[in-house]
């Protein structure tokens, strides 16, 4: 399976990092989205992700092009604008063993697709849903999106007079079990969040501030590299230890809060800014709202709840992926039809 030089390091599946790459990006040079793609590749390699089990989904926009740029051995589905959540929902019902990764943008998710996003969260469809958030419609050449901050100025001078929608507070409000925010310029944090998401079973909403170098990276933009760097306040230093690695890594007791995922993996939170409990929903919401008031954007794994039933629980489907069932399991026999007919005579 290895396609690079034999000397390249391999993970537990015998895959090299090269095995997780995709086609060459066609985005603008310096685009924040490419840094996110790079971390997806790193996290997957390090998490021993089975690429052929991955379904990659997207809608329309610059962000939605990126699933072509990672995991060549995975199946990709670039759907229509804002409607990737429903596509992923259908795929996840068909094959509950698929590892779903959705890449969306602030236009795709917070405007045309907000309804689908909301209901995907509500149903808890297992998916890593990344919002590559730059506050602007890049592919249609620079219109404001619904995450653009009040007073934010576009390259051509127009000022946004509408309040932004915050994907993270929205997701927490809806009961999402894994809500994170990061910055494409912080690869270390993003890597830990992505690895934790890969171990999580349920909807993971990850809002990644990802500056648009072409249309929204000037000093008056709140989603520029400079502004993001100046206002990024990591809540904690995240540690992620995959279940299979637990024997080799020890998490120092007392120093950090540890959350154990259903698969046994552990995420440790070492407070940096203030002592935030990522399992406290109301506390997290309060903290985020305070951050918004102060013009800070707080990053990290903001909220975790590992106990929520997923769509596979609430639809009461068999443990075997539906697509693996054969005709004998799917087609009731003649006696069933005879019984139905009898009831109608």
């Amino acid at each position: 399976m290895t396609t690079t030089a034999p000397s390249a390091p391999t993970n537990k599946l015998g895959m090299t990092k090269q095995d997780y790459v995709g086609s060459k990006s066609t985005l603008c040079a310096g685009c924040g989205h490419d840094s996110i793609t790079a971390q997806l590749i790193n996290a997957a390699f390090e998490s021993n992700l089975e690429a052929h089990m991955v379904g990659k989904y997207s809608g329309i926009g610059c962000s939605s092009k990126t699933p072509a740029y990672f995991f060549n051995q995975a199946w990709g589905f670039n759907s229509v604008h804002g409607r990737m959540p429903a596509v992923a929902t259908g795929a996840s019902l068909a094959n509950r063993k698929l590892i779903n990764i959705g890449v969306s943008g602030d236009g795709d998710s917070m405007s045309i697709g907000i309804g689908q996003l909301v209901h995907m969260i509500r149903r808890n469809v297992p998916i890593i849903y990344i919002i590559e958030d730059n506050g602007v419609y890049g592919l249609t050449k620079g219109q404001f999106s619904a995450t653009a901050d009040l007073g934010s100025v576009l390259k051509h001078g127009s000022v946004n007079e509408l309040p932004p929608i915050d994907p993270c507070t929205l997701a927490i409000e809806l009961g999402c079990g894994f809500v994170a925010r990061s910055f494409s310029g912080d690869p270390k944090q993003l890597n830990a969040i992505l690895k934790a998401a890969m171990a999580f079973n349920g909807t993971c909403i990850i809002d990644v501030i990802s500056p648009c170098v072409t249309f929204n990276n000037h000093d008056d933009s709140t989603k520029s590299y400079k502004n993001a760097k100046d206002h990024d306040f990591p809540l904690h230093e995240l540690g992620f230890v995959q279940y299979s690695e637990l024997e080799n890594v020890e998490i120092p007791a007392g120093e950090a809060k540890v959350v154990t995922f259903p698969d046994g993996s552990k995420v440790s939170f070492r407070a940096m800014k203030e002592d935030h409990d990522p399992t406290d929903r109301f506390g997290t919401l309060k903290l985020l709202h305070e951050g918004i008031e102060k013009g800070e954007f707080l990053t990290g794994l903001l909220y975790v709840n590992t106990a929520k039933p997923t769509i596979h629980d609430t639809t009461h489907i068999v443990d075997t992926p539906l697509v693996h069932l054969d005709q004998a399991a799917l087609k009731p026999g003649p006696e069933a039809l005879a019984e139905c007919m009898d009831a109608l005579t």
Binding site: G55, Y57, W75, F77, S79, V80, R83, M84, P85, A86, V87, A88, T89, G90, A91, S92, L93, A94, N95, L98, Q116, L322, V323
Partner: peptide, 11 residues
């Protein structure tokens, strides 16, 4: 969308 997602995945 869900019909297509499921059909794509083989259901």
């Amino acid at each position: 969308g869900a019909v297509l997602g499921a059909g794509w995945a083989g259901a």
